[in-house]
Write a protein that binds this DNA or RNA. Structure first.
Lengths: 285, 285
DNA sequence: TCCTGTGAACGAATTCACAGCA
DNA sequence: TGCTGTGAATTCGTTCACAGGA
């Protein structure tokens, strides 16, 4: 899911399911690797293994694109690479701007995978005047003031936001107003955008929290002390104790691939309950 | 202890759906923000809006955790923050190691959201001897040789891989062998791990490709060359003809020169890599 | 009355299993 | 004889709509 509001009516057009779209890049990568090794054809089984999915899913996915395989044989690697690239829109050039050239923005600018798939860093933008002119990854950083001009002149339609959370929405609004219709958001904020604009977010913190959830479960199997979780809250109605956290983050995973089975047999007594104190004490500084 | 105990009318026993788990961090962040503003309670409607989901979904999600709301009123913010934190395992400390301190690794090390949710960067590891000892984000980088020792001594169970694709699997194997059971992978490779180990991946390139797909469709709407998906491939029966179609690489690379950005998901054995390799990214500063 | 909690309807995604073609 | 392509079955996730407690 990506768009902020509006349920995506999308998916309709060609009718390729979102889940499938999210896997196409995966297949493409595996195919590209095969191509570089001059492998002429692959079976769904082999390709699936290389992409980390199962073959039935892969075949179903490809069936949405058309019938590009040969029964009894498999898929022609080069041809499939081309078809998927075209379907994803990678046969054209996509100028991209990155806003917020901090640690992350710089990492993104230097990311090699960028240029290798039709994406081109058209400009780097930062609000810090001191950054202006300084080259990052060979590209001079420009000041935020230039944002609209840059977008317009470069015909950019994809923007990457790597600013602090506090600035994200504002940057987003300006990008959208300037004509950007797809945004990749690295800031830990929910962005609201008008219809027609796609937003995808990537967030380390969320991924880690999901891992922690499963990790806890692995270890916590045997420990279970407290009672039921249903018990009524100690409720204190007090109010916001200062403490607590700073902005965190989240990310939407498209088809995040989990490695394996969740939960297994439903831990019985699970759910401990932290009756002890009451609220937060969570998070260290 | 018998698995029996689950006899509560409501309340599920365990088995919180993955989709729900993936949203808990979102709710947590929204709640934390409310908490900081000393808001005592929220309705599902308000909280849902803040988290960017719809209220029915949010209520359903919370129902898997238990009944933590009050009909006619809403949810107690502090209490819910605590419950979700606990459910996610954030009430405990999670030492984490980051392997691969390039642009991305450094960005991750500097990411504030790290420490703010129970995660603590226990160590930074890099294969480059020249990096050893250099502090990044205040933490001295250690050499890969120390990996096993570090993991063991710090009791790390979550590892972050931010190395070039070519090194990822090997690093992964070592992490797993040393006891890590959850991995967050930023390298554009499919990692294979034994059962019991969770892997989540974050991939910038994939996110951009998904955006490109939708972007392309927005522009191409009206021309709608229908039916083209059913049409039979122009492909001739012959196979593996050298270059009938444009391989992705060239279709893609405007600014990219073939020599440089191979991308591709790491073919075992090959490991190009420039300064930084291919690594997608994450996190704002 | 208002808002939560949840059964039930619905829809999307995955998996099964096999028909059909090279 | 393989291996693709795909309906059918199944599982998972979302949304609806309303019962029921504060």
């Amino acid at each position: 899911m990506a768009t902020g509001r509006t349920h995506r009516p999308a998916t309709r057009s060609r009718g390729i399911p979102e889940a499938t779209v999210a896997r196409l890049p995966l297949y493409l990568r595996a195919l590209t690797a095969l191509s570089e090794r001059s492998v002429p054809t692959v079976s769904s089984e082999e390709l699936a293994a290389a992409a980390g999915v199962n073959s039935a899913k892969l075949r179903k996915d490809f069936s949405y694109l058309g019938s590009y395989g040969t029964r009894g044989v498999g898929y022609d690697v080069e041809y499939l690479v081309y078809q998927i690239s075209r379907e994803l829109g990678l046969t054209q050039d996509w100028p991209v701007v990155i806003v917020g050239i901090g640690n992350l923005g710089a990492a993104l600018a230097n990311y090699g995978g960028f240029a290798s798939r039709g994406f081109r860093v058209a400009a780097l933008i930062d609000a810090d005047p001191a950054m202006a002119g300084k080259p990052v990854a060979g590209i001079p950083v420009q000041h935020t003031d230039q944002l609209e001009t840059i977008i317009h002149d470069s015909g950019v339609s994809i923007g990457v936001i790597a600013t602090p959370a506090g600035a994200a929405q504002q940057v987003c609004d300006r990008l959208v107003a300037a004509g950007v219709t797809s945004i990749l958001n690295f800031a830990p904020t929910v962005l609201s955008v008008p219809d027609g604009v796609d937003v995808r977010k990537v967030d380390l913190s969320i991924e880690l929290q999901i891992l922690a959830f499963h990790e806890q479960r692995k270890n916590g199997e045997e420990r279970d002390e407290r009672a039921d979780r249903d018990e009524r809250p100690p409720r204190d109605t007090g109010q916001a104790v200062a403490a607590t956290v700073a902005p965190a983050a989240e990310a939407a995973g498209p088809g995040a691939n989990a490695a394996q089975g969740p939960v297994a047999g439903a831990v019985p007594g699970a759910s401990p309950k932290g009756p002890d104190g009451d609220v937060p004490a969570v998070m260290p500084a």
